[in-house]
């Protein structure tokens, strides 16, 4: 009995002695849900931030496990940046609730939804139901695959970082401008490389690529998944094969976390080539940052189009 009172008294003491942390001056602890956001945060924040992603680039960002070790990372976060558009709805909310970090709670001043200023595609209009599969009611969350959105994300992060440490505002602003410039220069190069193949018809596994396709002129005519989040079915696969033959589609883009069995058998039937396309930084070892992601993916697509000789 007495020990219980003692424990509670100790608890109260702890509560009194550790108010929300005079967090030591040092780099800001930025936690992001994906490696793409971490990469952009590093570009903008330089050595004033320490950015870390919860998910890995070769992992399906819809299905991340809400591990308690992530609670520890969120507990120390000075800023949480999420992709938003319900991409993380299956795992982020309980982590945030358990984080004991009041500032990153919904509506808190240290939470940034990177999608708010981005160009979002496929926002459903009209009635939506789950008969359509696991649709995202707020639009397609794979918007970072357009470098223009990368710049918008950088701008939003700059605004947030500057609000958190106003003393470094000019540092962030200068780094953000430099990043935008490098992305713009690279984008000219990517668009030019892709120019001869504009309008190439492709099939993708999941609806991860609408922004990428729009920016670089690919025409997505179908998906290996019959509906978002629903694994391939034999009848849908047959229809897709026929459609691909009819339209002479020679490219199948597959995210690295999906099984390549069905795409491979479709490829055998149609003579198409399966591209394992990482949609995120870290999806392959050499994809170390946001610009390298497009370098890698564009090279993959262009080489495949050349090989297939198809348009």
């Amino acid at each position: 009995m007495r020990s219980r009172s003692t424990i509670l008294a100790l608890g109260a003491l702890l509560a009194a002695s550790l108010p929300d942390a005079a967090r030591a001056a040092g780099p800001l602890n930025v936690v992001t849900t994906t490696e793409d956001l971490a990469s952009i945060a590093r570009e903008v924040g330089g050595d004033k931030v320490k950015a870390e992603s919860l998910s890995r680039g070769y992992q399906d960002p819809h299905f991340v496990e809400a591990k308690p070790s992530f609670v520890l990372k969120l507990n120390k976060a000075d800023l949480l940046i999420a992709v938003g558009r319900e991409l993380e709805i299956g795992w982020l909310p309980p982590l945030v609730t358990q984080s004991r970090n009041s500032r990153i709670q919904p509506g808190g001043d240290r939470y940034l939804d990177a999608s708010l200023t981005a160009r979002i595609l496929e926002i459903p209009t009209g009635q939506i139901t789950r008969a359509m599969g696991d649709v995202h009611p707020a639009g397609n969350p794979h918007y970072w695959l357009d470098p223009e959105n990368g710049k918008r994300i950088a701008k939003a992060i700059e605004g947030k970082l500057a609000a958190i440490s106003p003393g470094d505002a000019s540092y962030f602003s200068q780094r953000e401008e430099d990043f935008e410039k490098r992305v713009s220069d690279a984008e000219k190069r990517w668009v030019a490389t892709m120019a001869p193949s504009r309008g190439t018809k492709v099939v993708t596994y999941h609806r991860s690529w609408p922004n990428f396709a729009e920016r670089f002129g690919l025409d997505v005519i179908g998906y290996v998944e019959p509906k978002p989040g629903i694994p391939p079915s034999p009848s849908h696969t047959l229809e897709l094969i026929q459609e691909m033959k009819r339209q002479n589609v020679k490219i199948i883009m597959v995210e690295p976390y999906f099984d390549s069995k069905t795409p491979n058998s479709i490829a055998r039937e149609t003579g198409a080539k399966v591209l394992v396309m990482p949609p995120s930084v870290g999806g392959e070892k050499e994809i170390t940052d946001y610009i390298a992601l497009f370098d890698y993916d564009i090279r993959l697509v262009v080489d495949a189009i050349k090989q297939a000789g198809a348009k």
């Binding site: 509560a15 002695s17 550790l18 929300d20 507990n75 609730t97 004991r100 009041s102 709670q105």
Partner: peptide, 9 residues
């Protein structure tokens, strides 16, 4: 209560 100090929930 998610906004308590000292890592309490």
């Amino acid at each position: 209560f998610t906004s308590l100090p000292a890592n309490f929930l």
